Amino acid sequence: MARPHRLPNPALFICDIQEKFRPAIHEYGKVISTAQKVLRASATLKIPVFATTQNAARLGPLCSELSIPPSAFQADKTAFSMMVPSLRSALSSAMSARYQVAIVGIETHICVTQTALDLIAQGHKVYVLADGVSSCNEGERGIALRRLESEGAVVTTSEGWLYECMGDASIDEFKEIAGLVKETKEETSEAVQALCKL
């Protein structure tokens, strides 16, 4: 019999990880690799994915490395928060319960912060994955993450969040997630070293 997961209602938010930002964002490759990993894990764990682009007509599509599932909700926006009306509607219609939302993307002090604050205000639990968020200016990250902690967000790592989603090694998906963690160990280590100095 399958055991319940520790986080009953997780969701993954992919915030504006677009090609045009590649040369500008501090350690952007690490953000992308962390997003790839949690997207793969989300498919295994059947976690819904919500992805946005910021003004795609000017700033282009999401990075090609990201395998956004066909079932994912996607929206383009000019607002800084991901919580535009169409996403709010999709979130509330998907399930009435509150979500445990993990956020990866850019920029930490702008779109990630405003999205997290809106989610918290609506009663969702927010996990900001420190190895999966960045900004143009490296120094903005730590300030934003400290602020988000003070506002009630949990600042953690992608691996920490994935294991919290599972909660028990006896669940059916554990072997596949453990394999993914092992496969991406080097990329994870590099992302943590580069982005988790708070």
Rank of each mutant, 00 (worst) to 15 (best):
H5I: 01
R6H: 00
L12E: 01
F13V: 15
F13M: 14
C15K: 09
E19P: 14
E19Y: 14
F21H: 00
P23Q: 09
A24R: 13
E27H: 09
E27R: 15
K30M: 13
K30P: 03
A35F: 06
K37Q: 08
A41C: 06
A41L: 06
K46M: 01
V49N: 02
T52H: 04
T52R: 07
Q54F: 11
A56Y: 11
A57P: 06
A57R: 11
R58T: 12
P61R: 11
L62S: 14
L62N: 14
P69G: 06
P69S: 09
A75F: 06
A75P: 07
D76T: 11
F80E: 13
M82E: 10
V84Q: 05
P85S: 05
S92H: 05
S93E: 09
Q100D: 07
V101Y: 11
V104G: 01
E107Q: 12
E107P: 12
I110C: 11
C111G: 12
V112W: 11
T113E: 13
T115M: 13
A116H: 06
L117N: 11
L119G: 03
I120C: 10
A121N: 12
Q122V: 13
H124W: 02
K125C: 10
V126M: 01
Y127A: 03
V128W: 04
L129Y: 01
D131E: 05
D131Y: 03
V133H: 06
V133N: 08
N137D: 10
I143P: 08
R146I: 07
L148A: 04
G152R: 15
A153R: 01
T156F: 09
T157Q: 00
E159I: 03
L162I: 05
C165D: 00
I171L: 00
D172Y: 00
G179K: 01
V181N: 05
K182V: 02
K182H: 02
T184D: 14
K185H: 13
T188A: 15
A194T: 03
C196R: 00
C196E: 09
K197E: 08
